[in-house]
């Protein structure tokens, strides 16, 4: 299976002022690698500062990485020729935002917002364009007359449907969904998740689904990568990851999620906080909080390596020893 999206050794550092004459860099991503196949959903989970949103932005060309390579549909959108490659793949690439209130221009009628990618690409006649807008509205379950209304006339869940309609305007192959349901109420969340799944099935879409909510990711992604402080610590098929997390951070994250089960025996809470990316800890970035920390973790960076077929983990605990 040829990967639609191929990310290798992605690095990203933002300048963050200077100290004592030396420029200070914020290392938000460190040697990130993953693939996404056709029709597949990769879930990217992590807490704030994990670098998951930056990864999404790099994949749609909003941000240029400082290192590593990104190949979309076989074309490299990093390094020389970036502009031309991006222009060539643009129509096959889309993005769904977290906040449906900020994602729509309040002064444009919904129809104009949805048609924007079409207008920019300039591929449709006026008739085709308007027909397409109505088709898209129907596709996301909104009344056809929505096109003439303004965003403020819609609820959060409806706006997210509009954002999805705009993303689908040019029938893309790959959509980055950055926390698409986290700003929505629980009852709206389920509607939007189901819509995204239906659309994937009908149109064969690939998703990069970025979220902090592990349960939401479990509902949508076939494969899941867990990020911590700019690195992927574990990546596996969904069933394996949730049933038997290998990395102590994945375990801690799963334990920390409150369950709608008052009788549950609460596992111990992991202490500490995410380290500053201005001076990330040496060795394993999770070692400051890890309950199983060893001397080696403080000095040696664990590499992401295969621990089982289709499963990768970056943890010294798994070296030599069979997976727990």
């Amino acid at each position: 299976m040829e990967a639609l999206v191929q990310v290798r050794d992605l690095d990203m550092a933002f300048p963050a002022g200077s100290a004592r004459g030396q420029p200070v860099l914020l290392h938000v991503l460190h040697k990130l690698s993953f693939d996404i196949g056709p029709g597949e959903t990769l879930g990217l989970v992590g807490e704030s500062g994990s670098g998951k949103s930056t990864t999404g932005r790099i994949l749609v060309g909003l941000t240029e990485p400082t290192g590593g390579s990104v190949k979309l549909f076989g074309r490299s959108i990093t390094g020389p020729g970036r502009r031309a490659s991006l222009a060539a793949v643009r129509a096959r690439l889309q993005f769904v935002f977290q906040d449906p209130h900020a994602a729509l221009d309040p002064r444009l009628r919904v129809g104009h917002s949805i048609a924007e990618p079409i207008d920019i690409a300039g591929t449709h006649s006026r008739r085709e364009r308007n027909d397409r807008v109505r088709e898209l509205l129907e596709l996301v379950g909104l009344p056809r007359d929505s096109a003439d209304r303004f965003p403020h006339e819609f609820s959060g869940g409806q706006r997210q449907r509009i954002v999805i309609a705009r993303a689908l305007a040019l029938a893309p192959d790959f959509v980055v969904c950055d926390e698409p349901v986290s700003a929505l109420d629980v009852s709206m969340q389920a509607q939007i998740i189901n819509l995204l799944m239906d659309l994937q099935q009908r149109m064969g879409l690939s998703y990069l689904f970025i979220a902090h909510d592990l349960a939401v990711v479990r509902a949508v992604a076939q494969r899941v990568a867990v990020m911590y402080a700019g690195t992927i610590v574990e990546s596996a098929r969904r069933e394996a990851l949730y049933a038997q997390p290998q990395h102590p951070y994945t375990r801690a994250l799963l334990d920390a999620v409150p369950r709608p089960d008052p009788g549950r025996a609460r596992p111990p809470v992991v202490g500490g906080e995410v380290p500053s990316l201005l001076a990330p800890p040496a060795g394993c970035r999770f070692h400051t909080r890890c309950p199983h920390v060893m001397a080696r973790c403080r000095s040696e960076v664990p590499l992401l390596r295969e621990t089982a077929p289709g499963r990768q983990t970056a943890c010294h605990l798994l070296d030599g020893a069979p997976p727990a």
Partner: peptide, 12 residues
């Protein structure tokens, strides 16, 4: 409508 962390994965 809440997605779960355990059990089978079904449509919400």
């Amino acid at each position: 409508s809440m997605p779960a962390l355990e059990g089978g994965i079904t449509r919400l």
